[in-house]
Simulated assay, not measured.
Amino acid sequence: MPANPKYLSSNWQRFAKITAGFLGGYFVTISFHLAISFFFNHVNVMITSTYSGFILWAVLMILAFIAKNGWKIWAIYLLITFLFSIIIYFGKIYNPIIS
């Protein structure tokens, strides 16, 4: 019995969800850990990021597939990455020894 077409997404939506899950989730995860490394001990954050990074990346990937619109989730992930990048920028300004 074939699936009902109204529940199937287009190829572009499938592409957007897959790339948002893998790449967008990775960008958010890495930028988050880099941002908090400027406010805590950066060695401890980078060591902890091997475990917490995988968990966060997996959660973000699942959220990308749950979302109805892949392009909106891409926009959200890019916005979050941009916000963490601003935190990284100001972290480098106020803590230049770490970089």
Rank of each mutant, 00 (worst) to 15 (best):
G70N: 02
P96R: 13
R14L: 07
F15R: 04
S99T: 10
I88R: 10
R14Q: 05
L23M: 13
K68G: 13
V28H: 03
I86L: 15
I87M: 14
F90Y: 13
I86E: 13
A67F: 10
A35V: 01
G25A: 08
W57E: 01
F54L: 13
L23K: 01
M1S: 11
N4I: 03
S49D: 10
L78I: 04
K17W: 06
L34C: 05
I73W: 12
S52E: 07
S85P: 00
Y89G: 03
S31Q: 03
Y26T: 12
S52Q: 08
F84S: 07
Y94H: 15
T29H: 05
F38M: 14
I30L: 09
L56I: 14
T19Y: 10
T81V: 05
H33I: 06
L78R: 02
F39G: 03
W57M: 05
S85R: 06
V28K: 03
S52L: 09
G25N: 05
N95K: 09
F54R: 01
I76S: 08
F22R: 01
Q13Y: 09
A20C: 05
L78K: 03
L83Q: 06
M1N: 07
K68L: 12
Y77I: 01
V59I: 15
S49F: 14
V59E: 09
N44E: 14
V59S: 05
N11A: 14
L56H: 05
N69R: 14
G91M: 02
W12G: 01
T48V: 08
L34D: 08
A64G: 04
F27Q: 03
N44P: 00
S10H: 07
A75L: 15
G24R: 04
G21W: 09
I47E: 12
G53W: 07
Y94D: 13
S99M: 12
I36M: 12
V43W: 15
S99L: 15
N11H: 11
F84Y: 14
S9H: 10
L83N: 06
N11L: 14
A20E: 03
